[in-house]
């Protein structure tokens, strides 16, 4: 039986422990062996979007990048990939506008296939499970940058960057700015956004993946609760609670048939023994 997350029993700020784990992870990665860069963005979402040298699709359509036009790829599963949003109702846990990059930046690594970790930390007093699905979907919105494609690979951020957009100046600072602007602009409950990008190694990205596992379990629980409130049970029959299952009659019928078949078989065998 798989551990079931009873979201109702968890503390109000569901992911605070994971944010603490993340802070510890960043500290351990920042031991002088890796390049670490930090940016602090203070502009409003509109100022960010107006001041970009690159286009962000207003029609919400992502643009295709062909292999021959590719400058580099981020998060190819073979190279290492991990991405997740994580949120809190506690303002002190998220440094608004902070972008942390551990590892090389985009323009430094032409033709590379870089490991990629992307964690989006969010604060909002009103953030709740109702926004969980929207936050999970929004993490792919960097793909609206003309020249940055998020490949259609479920459950992961696998990015492809074009030569053209790099020549216009795309780097992780700019990528982070776009994500900050889009989250704040399009999800009203989001008040602060902080970003972590990791490109240093597959092993470093896998450290994030350990935290991601716990985050996903809670996130899935939140999504299930939201659906349950709409009257849909995503788990269907997995609780094995026959008293509430609408298929109980069918199951009982099948049991009866199996019992009958076994009885018949036994009788037949007994009859054969007598005949002998």
């Amino acid at each position: 039986m798989v551990d079931k997350i009873e979201v109702a029993n968890l503390p109000v700020s569901l992911f605070d422990l994971h944010i603490e784990q993340l802070r510890y992870c960043i500290e351990s990665l920042n031991n002088g062996e890796r390049k670490m860069t930090q940016y602090d963005v203070r502009s409003t979402p509109q100022e960010i979007l107006n001041g970009l040298p690159i286009q962000v699709a207003e029609d919400h359509r992502s643009r295709l990048i062909l292999r021959k036009n590719t400058f580099l790829e981020l998060g190819n599963p073979e190279a290492g990939s991990c991405a997740f949003p994580i949120w809190s109702n506690e303002p002190s846990l998220v440094s608004d506008g902070r972008i942390t990059l551990i590892g090389p930046d985009i323009p430094e690594t032409p033709d590379a296939s870089l490991p990629f970790g992307q964690v989006i930390l969010l604060y909002g007093e009103q953030l709740s499970k109702a926004q969980q699905m929207a936050l999970e979907q929004k993490q792919y919105d960097a793909g609206l940058i003309d020249g940055y494609m998020i490949r259609s690979a479920p459950g992961r951020v696998w990015g492809r960057v074009s030569r053209e957009v790099v020549s216009k100046g795309l780097n992780f600072e700019m990528l982070g700015k776009v994500l900050i602007a889009l989250f704040k602009q399009q999800i009203p409950q989001v008040e602060s956004v902080e970003l972590l990008f990791v490109t240093s190694s597959k092993a470093d990205v896998e450290q994030l993946a350990k935290i991601a596992g716990g985050v996903k379990r809670i996130g899935d629980g939140l999504v299930k609760e939201t659906w349950a409130e709409k009257g849909f049970d995503l788990d269907a029959c997995i609780d094995h609670d026959c008293s509430t299952c609408h298929e109980v009659e069918d199951c009982d019928d099948i049991r009866d048939v199996v019992q009958l078949a076994q009885q018949t078989k036994r009788k037949r065998k007994a009859g054969q023994r007598k005949t002998r």
Binding site: R61, S62, S152, P154, L234, D235, A236
Partner: peptide, 18 residues
Amino acid sequence: GPAEGFLDDLTRIVRDYE
């Protein structure tokens, strides 16, 4: 498995393939 699999694929495909 649970219906989440259906949901995740649907959401991503609708978005990515417009």
